[in-house]
Write a protein that binds this DNA or RNA. Sequence first.
DNA 1: TAATCAATTGTAATCGATTGCATATTAATC
DNA 2: GATTAATATGCAATCGATTACAATTGATTA
Lengths: 345, 345
Amino acid sequence: MKKKTTIYDIAAKLGLTAATVSRALNNNPKISINTRKLVLETALEMNYEQNKLALALKSGKSYNVGVIVPRIDSNFFSSVIRGIEEELYPKGYHVIICQTHNQENIENEKINSLVNVQVDGILMSISNANLEENKGFNKLLKNKKTPLVFFDRKKDIKGISSVTINDFKGGYEATKHLLDQGCKRIAHLSNDRNFEIFRNRYLGYKQALSDNGIDFDESLVIETQSNVLDGRRAARLLLDMETPPDAIFSSSDFAALGAIQEIKESGLNIPEDICVVGFSNEPFTRFMELTTITTVDQFPLEMGRTAAQVFLEEVSNTGDIKITKNVVLTPQLIIRKSSLKHKEG
Amino acid sequence: MKKKTTIYDIAAKLGLTAATVSRALNNNPKISINTRKLVLETALEMNYEQNKLALALKSGKSYNVGVIVPRIDSNFFSSVIRGIEEELYPKGYHVIICQTHNQENIENEKINSLVNVQVDGILMSISNANLEENKGFNKLLKNKKTPLVFFDRKKDIKGISSVTINDFKGGYEATKHLLDQGCKRIAHLSNDRNFEIFRNRYLGYKQALSDNGIDFDESLVIETQSNVLDGRRAARLLLDMETPPDAIFSSSDFAALGAIQEIKESGLNIPEDICVVGFSNEPFTRFMELTTITTVDQFPLEMGRTAAQVFLEEVSNTGDIKITKNVVLTPQLIIRKSSLKHKEG
DNA sequence: TAATCAATTGTAATCGATTGCATATTAATC
DNA sequence: GATTAATATGCAATCGATTACAATTGATTA
């Protein structure tokens, strides 16, 4: 277990100074060609590798970025992370993963922890709709040293960049599609609308209804968690109504799946009796045997890549004026069997 | 954007030395109670936070661990990573993610890169069956400074710990279950058997056949990639045989799904005509509407947690003799509709 | 009263690389 | 041949925290 060689070792071997070695390795023009060559050869020979920790301490840059997500084991988030990693690794950055489990206190703690290990930036999808009340987060905001980029679940905060999809449009088009299928009574499985993404999907839904002369009926909107079981519960509520809906637009694929299960078990047919549209394009929506699920693709890979790019721009921006970028990707409605009564014109 | 306060700032404010402040903060018993109290209060007041980079440089410990996987956006790997993160974060570690895309050169590079940023350990699922021929990997092995733990896709290398499931048993039980269903001609969608996991599933399959008096038929084993399309291709080959199989045990859920699609499209019924069993318990296997897929659960969360624990043991082991631990988790066959012709006795 | 000891705190080196400011050497110029 | 300029290298501080090894202080003891 021999120690790693340092520039001092190289310097000693060549009768030089660490300073000279350092400059030679960094292609400083002040170093003579001979010395440079000698140093480079010796470095190779001695298996020299730059100590990044020393560099980090000196420069204040760790070349690590933190990524905070509610959880990593969902296709959406792991795909975003994949995109981030693919974009940042070639630039020399490593990606540190943190999960919040949707708990505000954990999110708080992880933000602190990441700042504490001197990450060069934080990319996050928030778990706390009231992030501004969060101490760790506020410290991060004030000190402004660590670039912050929101993706997907963002907060509209001045000076903070974000990458999202146009959730309004996603909600609008999903609803419009259902209307085009002849549906008149469209329910919506929403989620906590303190989060922009869910509020916007909801608003898109409402707008589509209004644009097409359908009265908004609040009783058709049910707040639903993003999981199969709660989707079932919501569907049950809807089916038990005096006049059940003829379509459901769910802000979550998982809830949509639960709804589909509940609907089928009650003997109704999809899409004939009830059309269903989900959100996120989770893999299983494509794999369904009978009723592949219509859903909205959020392009998570691209979202991750873009968030990484925005981060890179921010760190490379040395000027005084900070550029805030709010990128909005366009979602894509993917029409499948769960909502397709007949070919659209 | 004020600078972060250091122990020197605290020292200056109190007319002390950085050494004293450091000791006070670290509860060194040589510091008087008064001084300690004073230092702690001032530290709090000045929002002092320990600079981990400086600490890392001094101590040689970065409190980062690297995790290398083929890809992160599959449920299996993201679940393992989730387990790792949950286990390590409370101990002060951060998890750095690297993807190889199953490419050997990238794997090589990422190993080097992680060692270079001084991670305290590497947990990995290999992408290269001939890892020993890998330069970066060998360096890692020789120098022995950075603990290495394999999970799932491991290599049997002396001195290297690993956490896997008993793939042999998984393959055996899957096959035995098919035999119990009355299947006589069981095909196997294998994968590159240079990887232990695939070889062992294959061997378990063979053993179950042999134990039950069924002759092994090599033509029923088809090397298949872990994706839907290749599963279709493999199924097509099998269906086109003179005597097609009456069951398929796939070493991948994705290939199993492809096979199911192909079988159904050719007008055959599952499980009546052909039983199918997958491997991994990917979410979609449970979500299938008609034919939920029988599969083998690998307990990825637990695998991740265990791998993390093994790593923690290795770093805390300061003795000279290195303890190598090879944990083998027990897989669980999850019987669903794709293979259940009738209740098992 | 001088010697000894314990309790605190300070000094300075260390981890490894970078960099502004000398300095030394050589070459070019008058 | 003396002066200037250019080139190459060294010196030493810095990033922030830790830690052997002094050094100081006051108290205790012979």
